[in-house]
Design a protein around this nucleic acid. Structure first.
Lengths: 248, 248
DNA sequence: TTCAACGATTGATCTGTATCAAGGCTGCCA
DNA sequence: TGGCAGCCTTGATACAGATCAATCGTTGAA
């Protein structure tokens, strides 16, 4: 699912995740050459809006470094995050040319972009890419559905515990650390962003984090750095039975 | 997006949605022939569980008639619906062999199934199918994200209005009726199922339906048959700015 | 050094929805 | 014809989380 799941056949292209995700595993060199021709990089500063909902999108992209969010906003300003983009995640949608969500950089972000038209042409010629993209989209759909359970049925405390668990798992899978004892996470989001993720207010987020800290489920250094003494305990607090494959 | 968006090149296969969705538009006859060989039909009675979460899945399928739901359940019994399957919707996931959710028939259901192995082989040989499947999955992802906004940020009243609007729109697109004045919908769900869809209790669902009726936003005959005198008014109640393309 | 801006925490209070409970309607079977 | 089972509605009450408000710590600019 993540970037590191695929064997990096082409070491020399280590800078560009989409190669791994979409091509490398079974690639042929001319595919790589073609991808090479249509790609370019863009970087964004923390807080900057990368794409506005409704914008024309003439590219698709892959996050190289940094973290970005997908959010939806109602007319009166209520906001709901609907996606969290970590390195190697894909942005944009072949076959649609305006963006459906705001994409915002929450840290400095580097994206690897592909002009859409040539990318689509490539996709129709090379089955690997379409295939890989389908797999990634299905993973995201599963994650969205897990998220729906969280939004619809979990308590505030469970939501916070789930968020910490999700981030811890993604971190662990990205860095290939899989130590089973104590885990350490840096929350990449402000309290307000967490609230938008979880369908809560930032005050409730703050209160529940304090409560989990008080009860020894997590401990904090500063506002962002979290230590999880017992991951299974955290999962219990999250109301999560599925230890197995968590997605996104 | 829906079954009827694609030109039905092969009239003679009108009984099997997946042909339209995955193949027909630009199909070649040998693809059809191969699909023909690996498909079979199954029917289920209202209320019957089609697939249990965790089950081995050795097929993928397409809903021919009837309505089914995808739900997730927590250990203590809290339930959240995460998908609503109408005719022509796709079930199952190439590349994964156990089900992630319960699939339940809420009416009598007929499914058109394809054994997974041969379907996957076909997919790797014929780009159309993978392509079409990607499109469908992206549509579902968009719908899931719309749903996340609903679950995380909308009030009970807005949730009900949204649900009625969503069903009305899907109905309209399925039957190609696009009358702009009065609309008529039959709710395919019980109050409890609506509650599971919306992250509410069945009591709250009932109360809010009564309130919308009292305020003239909708009117009811019996418990299921809804008339919408003014669709724009309903959308306003739903907190929906996006009249445009609603998905699923 | 002061001040402003920002993020976070904590308290007091309010409110929307859950929960608990009772009863109504409809269709089906004995 | 009665009675039971599902489904739905409505009322009373409880409570989780929202809202409003005050304060604190940190950072960075004047």
């Amino acid at each position: 699912m993540s970037l590191h799941d695929l064997p990096a056949v082409h070491q020399e292209c280590g800078d560009c995740p989409i190669r791994h995700r979409a091509v490398c595993a079974r690639c042929e060199s001319d595919e790589l050459a073609r991808l090479e021709q249509i790609k370019y990089y863009r970087s964004y500063q923390s807080g900057q809006t990368i794409i506005w909902s409704g914008d024309r999108m003439d590219f698709v992209a892959s996050v190289v470094t940094g973290i970005a969010t997908l959010t939806q906003t109602m007319e009166d300003g209520r906001r709901q995050m609907v996606g969290l983009l970590l390195p190697s995640d894909f942005v944009g949608r072949p076959g649609r040319n305006s963006a459906a969500y705001d994409v915002t950089a929450t840290t400095d972000v580097v994206m690897c972009c592909f002009r859409k038209r040539p990318f689509e042409e490539m996709m129709s010629q090379t089955p690997h890419i379409a295939h890989r993209l389908l797999e990634m989209t299905l993973d995201e759909l599963d994650a969205a559905r897990e998220w729906m359970l969280l939004l619809g049925r979990k308590t505030a405390r469970e939501k916070i515990a789930s968020l910490v668990a999700i981030i811890a798992r993604r971190d662990a899978s990205l860095s290939l650390r899989r130590s089973k004892g104590e885990m350490v996470v840096d929350l990449p989001l402000t309290r307000e962003e967490m609230a938008d993720y979880l369908g809560l207010t930032l005050e409730t987020v703050s209160r529940q984090i304090s409560a989990l800290k008080r009860d020894g489920v997590i401990s904090l250094e500063g506002k962002r750095h979290v230590t999880i003494p017992d991951f299974d305990r955290l999962l219990e607090e999250a109301g999560d039975d599925t230890d197995g494959g968590l997605l996104i």
